[in-house]
Design a protein around this nucleic acid. Structure first.
Length: 635
RNA sequence: GCCCGGGUGGCGGAAUUGGUAGACGCGCUGGACUCAAAAUCCAGUGAUAGCAAUGUCGUGUGGGUUCGAUUCCCACCCCGGGUACCA
């Protein structure tokens, strides 16, 4: 999860390097994480949107470049990434001077370089970068190897040295010195190479060490109508002010259309009169049109929850101190780089400002798995809404086109219309059954398709609980049996542990074990029954409360403390040892738990079945793990 | 491509983290009840051989470590999710 956040933030360290443009009094600045490979730079690429494209392009190449830039602009982002398989680009006709060795290298325009990252321009080192290599091969650009892959297989190494293969891992520098300008990294390690070249660039004023992030905002940059408007006014004289506390909150204005403004501004720019404000001196101003869309507001809701009725401030220091940090954050993995990342960021800002008392907002994260559902797609892979699908003899067909479809498993979504409404389960089996089934279906963190196979199982369990404990004849007076007490207390322990570990499926199964035991035992006493109701209550609250009341209680069960298990009921006097020969279990033998190993050994060796397995062989060793297993090694 | 998960009966899933593989549930089979069916209750249910006692095989595949491996190590195959020309 933190890896995903790290990837999203995408911090990288490298250097910016200036290349002189041949015949122009300008520099082309690139960002690279590998300044050490400067000797291997054989061409440069600028993004189609780069501001210098027009200036760089020579008259002969102008039409070709213009056509290419236009073409790139028309491609959507999706197309551009979809076309990742093949590289495209066009030569600008212009050259740049490699500052480290004075070589003239071609400048190209290509859409595999993105304007939004770094400087929108790169130096290409085809021998040691797969993208550059692919491009250089496509357009017959020289490939110069400067890292000798000494530890690579011989065949591979030869290809790399000849510029016929790309090598992105470490190696020994070759062709990497220029005495005239005082730079020499041949023989250095990668780390030392990067440091040497970077300091050389800085000393000669040709570049500097830089840190870059690929972080994209995924929240405020996607403006929409629904969101809290910023309480900010831009005045005609250039002053910007925030609203008085007394003017808050600022509600959203009613608008006719929710589309973005004509200049691509937030939808609030369509709000007409609402936008214009005049102060008491007649000065005119315009309201800020940006809102806090989507989860911008919920990034801090947990703080407001600590003090929800406070009318003076978002939350009091006392309340914040008492409740924070949040014990548990339950959310899907899809929140990793969205809600969770923003929440952590905001919280850290508030912490630095001294407004909250913790550096992190959440103590523990739990990723619950997504519940998937069946969906349908055509042979060509396009999705068909589930309400346009009919089943005939185990095959699926579109009710619109009649085409045969195949069934896939995909996450539930509105667009696929494969959302399952749990109301049916509630109607047929009750809310407790639905609740219990969601816990019983499997581990909370597992992703799995929704199926109602098995709802019957938990429904049956609840029905058996009500049938057994609802029958007065099953409740006996007096002391509880040892066996029942043991299983009851095992159940308390297991359910307590499983709830703590959020393993609800096994907690439910333990309660089933207990109930099955009650049926076998035939009778249990009053105390056993009500203790079980307490355990059951968080899982099936309606059933548990009903039974609790049936037993003459007038208070609410949920307010009673959780039962505590008693170790004394769980201790055993004997243990049934599995006896194995060479690791294979052959029979079992019941022995006292405190029997010394020498006695156990004797008991095993004198057992009737033992002869059969040691016949004609000799015993090499006997391994006894107390109250676990006995293993006899024979040869 | 890269980064995470994960492969256990017909199915959903258990297994105290190296110690009896398959708890619990669904489904299926048989029995009881019923004129009959449903519901319910009881019993059985990994595969295979056997009337049985019992044997052999078995946790994606192949190897390794170990007295002992679903669990640890190495290589590979498959599935799911995330991400993607980030220089």
């Amino acid at each position: 999860m933190k890896d995903m956040q790290r990837n999203w933030i995408g911090r990288s360290t490298g250097a910016e390097v200036d290349f002189k443009i041949d015949g122009l009094d300008k520099n082309l600045r690139v960002y690279t994480t590998r300044p050490d490979t400067l000797f291997g730079a054989t061409y440069m690429v600028v993004a189609p949107e780069h501001e210098l494209v027009n200036e760089i392009t020579t008259p002969e190449q102008f039409d070709a470049v213009k056509a290419y830039v236009l073409g790139a602009a028309l491609k959507s982002d999706l197309d551009r990434t979809d076309l990742a398989k093949g590289k495209s680009g066009v030569f600008t006709g212009r050259y740049a001077i490699n500052p480290i060795n004075g070589t003239k290298i071609q400048i190209w325009v290509a859409d595999y370089v993105l304007m939004g990252y770094g400087t929108g321009a790169i130096m290409a080192v085809p021998a040691h970068d797969t993208r550059d290599f692919e491009f250089a091969q496509t357009f017959n650009i020289p490939i110069i190897c400067i890292l000798d892959p000494k530890n690579a297989p011989e065949e591979m190494r030869n290809k790399v040295l000849k510029g016929e293969a790309c090598w992105t891992e470490d190696g020994a520098y070759i062709n990497s010195s220029n005495i005239e300008v005082g730079i020499e990294i041949n023989g250095l390690s990668k780390e030392a190479g990067i440091a040497t070249v970077t300091s050389w660039l800085e000393a000669n004023n040709l570049g500097k060490a830089t840190i870059n992030y690929k972080l994209r905002d995924w929240l405020f940059s996607r403006q929409r109508y629904w969101g809290e408007p910023f309480p900010v006014i831009h005045w005609e004289d250039g002053e910007v002010s925030v609203l008085e506390d007394s003017e808050l909150p600022l509600p959203l204005p009613e608008v006719e259309k929710y589309m973005p403004g004509e200049t691509g501004e937030s939808p609030l720019s369509n709000a007409g009169d609402w936008l214009i404000v005049t102060d008491k001196n007649g000065r005119k101003g315009r309201r800020e049109t940006n809102t806090m869309p989507q989860w911008a507001g919920s990034c801090w809701y947990y703080l407001r929850f600590t003090d929800p009725t406070n009318n003076e401030e978002p939350f009091s220091k006392i309340a914040e101190n008492y409740w924070m940090p949040v014990d548990l954050y339950v959310g899907g993995a899809e929140h990793a780089v969205l809600h969770l990342l923003y929440s952590r960021f905001w919280h850290k800002v508030l912490f630095d400002l001294g407004i909250v008392s913790t550096n992190e907002p959440f103590q523990k994260l739990f990723n619950q798995g997504m519940i998937l559902a069946f969906a349908y797609e055509t042979a060509s892979g396009s999705k068909v809404p589930s309400d346009q699908v009919e089943e005939r003899e185990g095959k699926y067909f579109s009710t619109v086109t009649g085409e045969e479809l195949h069934q896939i498993v995909a996450k539930m979504s509105k667009s696929l219309k494969n959302v399952v409404n749990p109301d049916d389960v509630v109607t047929n089996y009750g809310a407790d059954s639905l609740r219990l089934f969601e816990m019983f279906i499997g581990p909370l963190d597992a992703t799995k398709p929704w199926t109602e196979n098995g709802v019957k199982g938990v429904y049956n369990f609840l029905r058996r609980v009500v049938a057994f404990f609802g029958e007065k004849g099953n409740i006996a007076e007096g002391e509880e049996s040892k066996e029942t007490l043991k299983i009851l207390h095992q159940t308390i322990r297991k359910v307590s542990d499983d709830v703590r570990d959020m393993k609800f499926n096994t907690a439910v199964s333990q309660m089933m074990v207990f109930t099955n035991h009650c049926y076998k035992a035939g009778k249990v006493n009053h105390q056993t029954a009500v203790t079980f109701f307490q355990v059951l209550a968080p899982f099936a609250p309606h059933v548990a409360e009903e039974l609790w009341e049936l037993y003459g209680n007038t208070s609410v069960l949920s307010f009673h403390p959780w039962p505590v298990f008693n170790e004394a009921y769980l201790t055993e006097n004997t243990f049934e040892y599995p006896v194995s020969f060479n690791g294979k279990v052959r029979f079992k033998i019941e022995l006292p738990v405190d029997m010394p190993t020498t006695e156990i050994e004797k008991a095993v060796l004198t057992h009737d079945h033992t002869d059969k397995w040691i016949e004609g062989k000799s015993i090499a060793k006997i391994i006894i793990v107390t109250n676990k297993i006995v293993n006899v090694v024979v040869k």
